[in-house]
């Protein structure tokens, strides 16, 4: 699997280096984007959803066909309150919307409107994720195991000894004006009653080979430490966790990150666009990323990144 992936990456890299990037629009015909269209769609995303921004990334990884200041899109510090698997289970058990049981009882719906909405409300019209040709075998929890933290857990032995603290008067612990943070959570890995607020940095790059946007995930645990990629998979819909999500070098940042493989993105986007057109809508390319992010929400249902809630893709004539 890994070798196959490497060979494919090498092939892809070779093809990318000798082919020129797409300049003719095939957005409606194939669901793909040209470089210019990616910039247009990205600019629109940044202006409608300001938590997203363009970034330039590592200077030595810069792609010449993209502007230096618009290499990729990123939104940081996005909350992820629950594991995708537990939401799926509860959703199935309750047969629909589930109230998350956090202490505030402020009525968070596990559906969060977005991802499930597309499945329940628009089920007849929108193509389901089955177009990704993924079997539904592994939906059960057994795919999720508690893995010791990447940076704690098994590595605990390697932590160097620290001197005990003798000077406490400079610590905020002892200062009466420092609020004791009420949102620190416990760390029992298997206690499902604990609300585990992970956060994610979600980035969108342009994949020149597939001519589509591509999603990358960098996760942080409750104590803001990097999540191992295996644990990132807990936040991916179990239909996709071990199939469409791979761990690869980020094209613009350091290190290895989880990514939703873009091989079927064009086809899914084409289906979504066809549905819109059959309803009499005229899809506009600057809204591509809103539609794309709505589709991605079905893969990562609990990562609450922003995209406009009530977008209307294109001008509906009727």
């Amino acid at each position: 699997m890994v070798l196959k992936q490497k060979i494919h990456e090498a092939f892809k890299g070779a093809v990318e280096s000798i082919t020129s990037h797409r300049t003719v629009s095939a957005f409606k015909e194939k669901g793909v984007l040209s470089v210019n269209e990616f910039i247009i769609a990205g600019d629109n995303l940044v202006s409608k959803c300001p938590t997203w921004s363009w970034e330039s990334g590592e200077p030595n990884k810069r792609k010449p066909y993209l502007p230096a200041d618009k290499q990729f899109l990123i939104t940081r510090n996005v909350p992820c309150l629950r594991r995708a698997a537990s939401v799926e289970e509860e959703y199935e058990a309750a047969g629909g919307e589930v109230l998350l049981d956090n202490e505030d009882n402020d009525g968070w719906l596990a559906t969060h409107g977005k991802p499930r909405e597309s499945k329940s409300d628009d089920n007849e019209n929108l193509p389901s994720m089955d177009t990704l040709e993924i079997s539904k075998k592994n939906t059960k929890k057994n795919t999720i195991q508690s893995i010791p933290s990447y940076f704690g857990g098994e590595d605990e032995d390697n932590i160097p000894e620290m001197d005990e603290l003798e000077d406490v008067d400079n610590l905020i612990e002892t200062d009466p004006a420092t609020l004791e943070t009420p949102y620190l959570v416990a760390h029992e890995p298997d206690d499902d009653n604990i609300l585990r607020t992970r956060t994610y940095d979600v980035s969108i790059t342009y994949d020149k080979y597939y001519q589509t946007p591509r999603i990358w995930l960098t996760g942080y645990d409750e104590s803001r430490m990097l999540l191992e990629s295996k644990r990132v998979l807990e936040d991916v819909s179990q239909d996709h966790a071990h199939k469409t999500v791979t761990v690869e070098d980020h094209p613009h940042l350091s290190g290895k990150h989880a990514s939703i493989h873009p091989c079927r993105h064009g086809a899914v986007m084409k289906n979504l666009i066809d549905v819109l057109m059959s309803r009499g809508g005229e899809p506009e390319v600057d809204k591509y990323l809103f539609l794309f992010l709505k589709f991605i929400a079905s893969v990562i249902p609990t990562i609450e990144y922003d995209y406009t809630m009530d977008f209307d893709l294109g001008s509906s004539s009727s």
Partner: peptide, 16 residues
């Protein structure tokens, strides 16, 4: 004041 409290303790962070 101002040294960050990490995981509820006055100690440094460690990452591998």
């Amino acid at each position: 004041v101002g040294w960050e409290v990490n995981k509820g303790n006055a100690k440094p962070n460690f990452i591998s």
